[in-house]
């Protein structure tokens, strides 16, 4: 399981530096970012019903798209102490799976009352806790309310059913030795 952690940690770092390199070049789109549904409702630009519908949409995706870990410690190393929870999944051997807590959500701009994109949950990493990032580790900045984010950050986050891991094969070979017949 150490391997799964390092592979995710590496992708996190690569993600951060990529954003730094490409932030100026990438096309930006309008979006709204809130830490919770109350903050959204208090925004004079937003309608309560929109806030609630978007929050519900993001919340509904949270468990399926959040990054997954086989241990709580690995999750906390990436997202901070007390910032992880148990995911509603099990590893293939029946163990618990952990994921970061949802720390906010992002919705598209409301042109003509229709959101230009699906809402999605946001997270904060332990390395850069002021910035929100998507479930696919795209930095969307620390501004709440109306903001502009890289277009690539608004694409739909991928499903992450089980923790990415290695080492689920090979144990019998260790026990019995040669496969030769």
């Amino acid at each position: 399981m150490t391997k799964s952690r390092s592979s995710i940690a590496i992708s996190l770092m690569v993600g951060v530096s990529l954003i730094a390199l490409t932030a100026c070049d990438e096309p930006k789109v309008d979006a709204s970012v809130f830490k919770d549904v109350e903050q959204c409702k208090n925004d004079p630009m937003m309608r309560s019903s929109q806030c609630e519908a978007s929050f519900k949409e993001a919340r509904g995706q949270h468990a399926s798209v959040a990054p997954k870990y086989a241990t709580k410690a690995d999750c906390q190393a990436d997202f901070g102490d007390e910032k992880c929870e148990t995911a509603p999944y099990q590893t293939s051997s029946g163990g618990s799976v952990f994921m970061p807590m949802m720390m906010g959500y992002m919705m598209g701009s409301m042109l003509g009352g229709r959101s230009s994109m699906m809402s999605q949950p946001l997270y904060r990493s332990s390395k850069n806790p002021s910035a929100f990032r998507t479930a696919d580790n795209r930095n969307v900045g620390s501004t709440t309310g109306r903001t502009s984010v890289a277009k690539s950050a608004t694409s739909r986050p991928s499903f992450k059913k089980s923790t990415m891991s290695r080492g689920g094969f090979g144990s019998s070979g260790g026990r019995f030795g040669s496969a030769a017949t």
Binding site: S158, S165, R166, G167, G168, F169, G170
Partner: peptide, 12 residues
Amino acid sequence: LKMEDIGIDEQG
């Protein structure tokens, strides 16, 4: 690759 190096991604 070695059997034990096979991994699994988020989509199984």
